[in-house]
Structures are given as structure tokens and as C-alpha cells.
Design a protein around this nucleic acid. Structure first.
Lengths: 140, 140
DNA sequence: TATTGTTATACTCTATAACTATA
DNA sequence: TATAGTTATAGAGTATAACAATA
């Protein structure tokens, strides 16, 4: 007899990932953000990028990027301006408010992660991180 | 400076879970099944159930269950019949073809999991399974 | 002709609610 | 009136393709 699917590592990984994702979404929601916004902002920090470059860095497609930047611009977290070098491109820059929003989001996410991993000891968390990272870089 | 989000355990867990889910979906697709179908079939094995009971066992809601059972019935993997005890209920039973399809799917999933976890040693897989399981039962 | 950003369209999912047939 | 199953509808999410402006 086959072992129950829901006792297997693969299934557990899928479920745990979904659970973690929901937690993180829930933490960002009160800030009016979603994961993708945070990832895009993180990418913008320190330097300006074209939308194209942001797409490559984050893996979002360009139509999604338009919507994300619309959101960020509307909240005053980012600004778009035409590139003088290539007028097809938009130079996207992070505002001070955007930087502050990122810090707040990063803190909230770190707290949520801390709570999520709380059942494990420090050593076990390191183990988990190592195993997961290796799977992701090797398998994925 | 904050550490990159994509180097953190929580983020890695979310991504790895999504990756594993995509793999498993990909393995089931050629069989014309999705995860939910397999979970429902697994629940039906050995005993008959009402749709309601299948919903409780799998966490699917009843409108989704209708679609899943439509699929399974169309493929000849399941049959619905009126309960004589309570004619509102459908007694759902697994067919021989359904049982065979389940075995095939379970094997394909086991192979996919094996490949997915291949970068880890047997001991590390046990570790991973233990850590993930504990997180899921404690945190989730 | 190709590229950047944008908009429009269509498709999938899901969640809700309305409907039927029984109880 | 409540329950089991079904169907219909609407909303969000995503992916594709068409479009405008530059190059």
C-alpha cells in the first residue's frame, strides 16, 4: 500500500510554502502591498532601472510590472520619467517614502518569518535554510 | 542594511513550495489529472463516501468537488449513485480504472519527489521531512 | 524592423450565491 | 426549515496579443 500523499516530504513542502506565502501576504496587506511590490522596490533601491530591467531582476512580466509601478507611483513610492538617452524607456526611481515603506515591509516580513520559524531551534533553522537553499539552487 | 529577501528562509520556502507544486502538476498533467483529483481518489480508496464527506476529508469546497467528480466520472474513474438511505446524497465509488489511475499517479509523484529531493542525502531528506512536518503541525 | 511601455482580451480560479430535490 | 448536490455569476489573477512611441 502506498503511503498517504499528505505525509510525504514533497506534499508537505508544497503545503508549507503555501502557508508561509499566505502569512507573508497577510502581513503585507495592511501596508497596502503585496510580495511583488516589495520585490520590485528592493530591486530599485540604490539605483534607477528601466521597467525592462526590473522585469529581468524580479521575473515579473512587463504587463504585470506596469500594474505594480502604477500602484507604487500612486502611493508616492516610485516615480517614472522618460530616459533622455532612449526615450522609449522609463527611468524608475524610488522615493523617500518608498524607501521607508520598504523598511517597514522588510521589518514586518522579518517578524512574520521569526514567528513562522519559532517552533525550530536556531540550529534547526540554519539546517532548514541550508537544505532548502540547496534544493532550490540544485533542483530549481 | 537589510539582508536580501530572496536569501531568507521564509522566502525560499515559498519559492521552493511553488517549484515543487509545479513539478508535481507537470507530472500529473500527462495523466489528465491534477493534485485535487489524486487527493479525492486517495480518499475514496477502500470505502465509499458522500460528496460532503469527501469535501471534509480533502478540504475542497462542494462546488469544486462537483467539478472534480465530473472529471473522474467522465474518465470512468468514479461513479455516483443515489444513496438509498438519504436520497439527497450521492454515494461515490472508485472504479477499477480509478484505482489503477491512482496507482499510476502515485508512482509518478513518488518518482518526481525522488528526483526533486535527489540533491539531498537520505539523512538530509529525513531531516528536511522532520523539520517541515514540525513547522506544519506547530505553526500551521 | 525591433524594442519599450501600455492597453485590451481572453482564460483560468475561486468564491458566492441561487436553485433543485430531498429530508 | 435545513441539507446535498448542482449551476450560475462575478471577481481576481494571469497570459497573450495587439498597439503607440520611439529606435
Amino acid at each position: 500500500m502506498e503511503p498517504r500523499l499528505d505525509t510525504q516530504t514533497g506534499y508537505l513542502l508544497v503545503k508549507l510554502g503555501a502557508l508561509a506565502g499566505a502569512r507573508f501576504d497577510g502581513v503585507l496587506a495592511p501596508l497596502g502591498l503585496r510580495g511583488r511590490h516589495v520585490r520590485v522596490i528592493e530591486e530599485m533601491r540604490g539605483a534607477s532601472h528601466s521597467q525592462q530591467e526590473l522585469c529581468q531582476a524580479t521575473g515579473l512580466d512587463r504587463t504585470t510590472m506596469v500594474a505594480v509601478l502604477d500602484d507604487l507611483e500612486q502611493r508616492g513610492y516610485a516615480r517614472r520619467s522618460r530616459s533622455t538617452a532612449d526615450r522609449r524607456k522609463h527611468v524608475v526611481t524610488l522615493t523617500g517614502a518608498g524607501e521607508r515603506a520598504f523598511k517597514e515591509a522588510a521589518r514586518a516580513l522579518a517578524d512574520a518569518q521569526e514567528a513562522f520559524l519559532a517552533p525550530l531551534s536556531a540550529g534547526e533553522r540554519d539546517q532548514l535554510r541550508d537544505l532548502v537553499e540547496r534544493l532550490r539552487t540544485t533542483t530549481g
